[in-house]
Design a protein around this nucleic acid. Structure first.
Lengths: 225, 225
DNA sequence: CATGATGAAGCTTAAATTTTGCTTAAAATT
DNA sequence: AATTTTAAGCAAAATTTAAGCTTCATCATG
């Protein structure tokens, strides 16, 4: 699940990002409304957390423009204001929920879960061949045997399996898994593909990740014999 | 014992939380029905205290949905209404008891004790491996031997063991055990984990608290040989 | 038509760097 | 005096970089 936070106070922004990443969300940060709107329009997020009072473009304006552009992404407002009019105003502008600062992180998580509930069909294990991935607990199994992965390894494998039978280009991978949004020549992907293949092979789970030369990678369900 | 309070009036909510914590209950708070239901569904509580008149989803609806989901947790209603029909209505919806506001804290405690009596009588102890925790007396035993812990050490261990076999993220720990809601830059947790591990090890109770790198900690029941 | 030279793309490995957690001692708080 | 918190140094793990190696497709040459 991908979340975009639009928040200018570095303290709050950092705290949110860390906490949400511990919960296995992929978190992007924008420090003002303009950049936030730009991010939201050019990427697919599952949820937006937007502060009301931010530079360049107010949170409410971001919200309005997103809705005008046809986006249906759930938006959760953060606000210091808590008069009735402000709340009404925010929800009218297209927000789905709001929280007044300061708030408890647990409550925020609960509100996020409410927004994402429809997407999370309770028991959503990812499968590919003999591989089972539990995104909730961060566990990967090859049959019965658990495979221990580092956070980056897990993120990459999860992304590939979520898109199984579809080609994942290098640029999409670097964008979704590494949060790098500009061109750069790095061979991290290759290295991590090697790591993954090695660990999968050690668990007798081979020939799952295939290379598409010049493009990227694909996870293919092996034909059962 | 863990209690969830679903109550939107901050005054009453705060008063209840404080009072119950002095009685050594671990108290969570939700400010409306939607999030209350979400908390109740995603955590294990020993008792719910639910206001009748709350935003988003009425107390009675929370109750109904919980019962529909198969939950047997005792639910204690708070209500300003006290006509016979209302009481019948609430109990029909699956509540176990109710109190009309304003109420005496002592009476509330008494009613809570009634609801928890069954749990206390059986076995109120928390267990994990050779460890036994008595939340009522704040005692910890490794087999027969008692381990002396400071209040913070106890609170942390109790939280971890209550959530055994589940990952406790750093954010959740700092929030539940330390009541800190916005500080991401402290290493108290690490220090206390070290304290605990040292004391547990001294009592031959090892490999109970495991580290999940980048996320937090988990207490795992050691596989019996 | 076969062959092997060539370069681009991907693979592998090791080393460097960064991040994260552990431990300790000292400082602050109760 | 006991407990809690901070801060700093150390250690381990994860991540990234960089270099050499392999594979593959292409194409010129015999």
């Amino acid at each position: 699940m991908r979340i975009l936070i639009i928040e200018d106070e570095p303290g709050i922004a950092g705290f949110l990002k860390e906490g949400l990443e511990e919960e296995y969300f992929a978190v992007d940060l924008a420090y003002d409304g303009k950049h936030g709107l730009d991010f939201a329009l050019t990427n697919e997020y599952d949820l937006l957390i937007v502060d009301w009072m931010i530079p360049a473009l107010s949170g409410i304006e971001v919200c309005r423009q997103l809705r005008k552009a046809g986006s249906l992404v759930p938006i959760l407002f953060l606000t210091a204001k808590d008069t009735v009019e402000d709340v009404v105003f925010g929800l009218d502008a297209g927000a789905n929920d709001y929280m007044k600062k300061p708030f408890e992180f647990e409550e925020l998580l609960a509100r996020i879960r409410v927004q994402l509930r429809s997407k999370n069909s309770t028991d959503d294990m990812l499968r590919a061949g003999m591989l089972t991935i539990n995104p909730a607990t961060h566990q990967v199994f090859a049959g019965e045997e658990e495979i221990a992965l580092t956070p980056k390894e897990f993120a990459l494998l999860e992304y590939l399996v979520r898109n199984k039978e579809r080609v994942c280009t290098r640029s999409r991978i670097i964008e979704h898994v590494w949060d790098i949004h500009f061109d750069s020549d790095t061979s991290v992907i290759d290295v991590y593909i090697t790591f993954l293949r090695r660990k999968l092979e050690a668990a007798d789970c081979e020939q799952l990740i295939h290379t598409i030369r010049g493009v990227g990678y694909i996870v293919r369900e092996p034909a059962s014999p």
